[in-house]
Design a protein around this nucleic acid. Structure first.
Lengths: 199, 199
DNA sequence: AAAGTATGTTGACATTGTTAAGATTTGTGT
DNA sequence: ACACAAATCTTAACAATGTCAACATACTTT
């Protein structure tokens, strides 16, 4: 019933869907979004040009699936930050640094994740749910910081947005080449994030 | 020697270069970046498919020129904020609100301006200079706020980056559909920016 | 007016996203 | 086991796009 990755080449290809997502993500990270073509993905996966259409409605749907894997990884980084943080504030700082670090390490993927073309037209409900996980974790983190500081909890919404904005803004500015960590006496995007959040 | 816009149709077309930029910006704002093709721009300008190549090296160069007009407008909004602000802090708040408002009103253009593809490979020096004007204005603004608060001026760099990050982050989150002003009891992106900056 | 340059057009090519039609493999009911 | 439907994959084809080459026309300079 479920796919059996052990049994080599169980079906025509095994599980092409995941192979296409993986191939697409590789091309994306190696060559950028504009070099990512459906045909190129199929080529790397070793199948015909139109094979992907049996697993994805169109190119945008494949992109959404690739972006979804990015959101899963981003949520993983967030969970790690919350686990390793010594205090609510420390958790929040680690969250921000991890967020920016992720963006700097996967610029094309990060841009795709927040490209905005994936949320409007089509379905992508599953994609949107995955995308909201990191945000919910941030929200919990901010709520704890407010509680620890004795601040009213009705500030949670707007403070969460503030925190998200500042780390997301820094991440995009670095990715797009508008800000270089070296200009701020920092050796990495993560360092710059920590420095900025510490002000 | 110089072009004479008065004399109607002075040359073959008058000044195709600016017409192409204008046509491109229209298509960009009406239909989005993925619908913006060189051929489409040429079509709207009423010229042949390859006419743009006599004014722009390639599509990316045209996009850079379009983005440059966006940075000019953004700098105009910034200047207006600095002129109308009653105090350094008020200037800074108006700058942020204007920044987000501009992004919300020109989402596709704003995304293009910060797409990051325009700064790496090619020349685009003129484009980069124009792009840095808004940033310099923000820097002056932040410096005045610090001075008014008696804070040390060596914080200017990092504080400017913080301010830029938070408004830029909010702008992109709104543009990409990750944040809706209505979810924060705001009627516009500008209002949400003001609300957030006031915390 | 001649020559040269700037600007514009037509034609062509490779690449891309996508659809249509057909072939092959897998699962299902008997 | 076997026929049949569903899933999966392939080839062929189409329109659209970015770009180049070759050619034509308009303007400038002398």
């Amino acid at each position: 019933m479920a796919k059996s990755p052990n049994e080599s080449r169980a079906y025509h290809h095994g599980n092409l869907k995941e192979a296409l997502i993986e191939a697409g993500r590789q091309i994306l990270e190696e060559e950028g979004l504009d070099k990512l073509s459906l045909r190129g993905v199929a080529r790397r996966a070793g199948v015909s040009q139109t094979a992907p259409y049996h697993h994805f409605k169109d190119k945008e749907t494949l992109l959404a699936a690739i972006a979804q894997t990015g959101f899963q990884d981003l949520a993983g980084a967030a969970r790690k930050a919350l686990k390793e943080g010594k205090s609510p504030q420390d958790q929040l700082d680690r969250y921000g640094a991890g967020y920016v670090e992720f963006a700097a390490k996967h610029p094309a993927l990060f841009n795709l994740m927040f490209s905005g073309q994936l949320s409007s037209d089509k379905d992508h409900t599953e994609f949107l749910e995955t995308a909201s996980v990191s945000f919910e974790l941030l929200r919990q983190c901010v709520a704890q910081v407010l509680e620890a500081n004795g601040a009213p909890p009705n500030l949670t919404d707007i403070r969460t947005l503030s925190s998200w904005s500042i780390v997301h803004g820094l991440a995009t500015l670095i990715i797009d080449g508008r800000v270089a960590p070296e200009d701020y006496a920092c050796t990495s995007a993560k360092d710059l994030a920590a420095k900025m959040l510490g002000c």
